[in-house]
Nucleic acid binder design. Sequence first.
DNA 1: CATTCTCTTTAGAATGATTATAATCTGTTG
DNA 2: CAACAGATTATAATCATTCTAAAGAGAATG
Lengths: 149, 149
Amino acid sequence: MDAKLDNAEMENGTRPYSQTLARLRDAGLRPTRQRLALGRLLFEGGDQHVTAERLHEQAQGAGVSVSLATVYNTLHQFTDVNLLREVVVDSSRTYFDTNVSDHHHFFHEDDGRLMDIDGAKIEVSGLPEAPAGTGVSRVDIVIRVRSRD
Amino acid sequence: MDAKLDNAEMENGTRPYSQTLARLRDAGLRPTRQRLALGRLLFEGGDQHVTAERLHEQAQGAGVSVSLATVYNTLHQFTDVNLLREVVVDSSRTYFDTNVSDHHHFFHEDDGRLMDIDGAKIEVSGLPEAPAGTGVSRVDIVIRVRSRD
DNA sequence: CATTCTCTTTAGAATGATTATAATCTGTTG
DNA sequence: CAACAGATTATAATCATTCTAAAGAGAATG
């Protein structure tokens, strides 16, 4: 056994729960079976953009039994503690983004797919001041594209 | 009577229907009583951001009887012919903007109000190319603000 | 490790915006 | 002014999301 192995991997034979577990702990969220399962699906699969419905399906597909209500609750709680970010691009669905760093999006209007655009590479100039008495909570740039056939 | 008066104002005693009438004609939309009334409310009151519900109320308030279904239909038809623009900032409501020129928005997260930002004054650099096979249909910038108490 | 307390989960009902349906009405054209 | 295509409307239907209140499960304690 290599000493470099994660603690989590040494404790039992399962995959690294620890990363997600630690995130939940740090965020002050009680690591329940459901939150761990959803967290693993979300955070251990690279950056992704999910809807509640899709995450629910993913969970079912992975053999995890979680109610849709819990999926909604969890997505919102994760968003509240900054583990997820809500992306508003379509008035009929809410997307949640596992990438919470500064970035923007391409939105494919034909199929609803989202792609990240690194925020560090973008520069916006000429923005007016926020209205008196208000502070900017976020600047969102959405580039809507459609396939040209 | 001044020769500079609008044709519309000379034809009868009513307010300038003509402007809205012309817009409908140009767009190829049959100028029905309902579309004229909604068009007047929308286009003759300066730039505004409305929801279907609000426009419906405005119509009632103005003594115009229009069903909510027609308000929805009309808003979408107007959007299709570029008399309106849909603004996606809130996943629970759809806003329609009477300003269809190049511009962006402040979105007040506390009360849902929108304010236009002239697009000519803004410069965005560093945007990556649109994904292969796609063309950009629009770039939307939303600055989310909240009042700081 | 049993108790207890609080936080979670959940099935199912409720909500609310939006869309579909199908009958009725109204511009427009000949 | 007849007749048809397009428009309006009341109403039902959808669909994502939220609410409810009841049952379940972590965590701290003795």
